[in-house]
Amino acid sequence: MSKFRKKKKGMPAVNTAALPDIVFMLLFFFMVTTTMRETDLRIENPRLPSATEIKKLEHKSLVCTIYIGKSKDPNRDGVGYNKIQLNDKIASAEQVPAFIINARSKVSEAEVPFMTTSIKADKESNVGTITDIRLKLRDVNALKISYSTQKGSSN
């Protein structure tokens, strides 16, 4: 009799030994898929203008990004919202063609016509700066441009 009584004692606990494994698996998945921003911003994070008629940028590897905005270090780069950042340096519009050609050398020739230049400019930047860049882009035949914006609400 005593043997039977022993079995009745308490509910068996659910085995949670495998729970950490599951969670770790998820954790590693997220760690691997998380991509850190590849360039540090030398300018303050641009406050993008908002628009409604926007298109998604596809093929991330074919996009080169030009940032325009206020420098984080005004003592070195000067003040104003018209600083241009290429790769991770503050540059001038004259350096844009070199930047594009350099980006082109990294993709195959067949894909060059699909390359897009994404311009991430601050709301308070001036159109003059954008135009300078646009003229330089036209010189090197980089004709596809995307002005990066937030999704705004339509009114």
Partner: peptide, 11 residues
């Protein structure tokens, strides 16, 4: 990334 896309005219 999304934005207003434009195509520049050729030189």
């Amino acid at each position: 990334d999304s934005g207003v896309s434009k195509k520049l005219s050729e030189k």
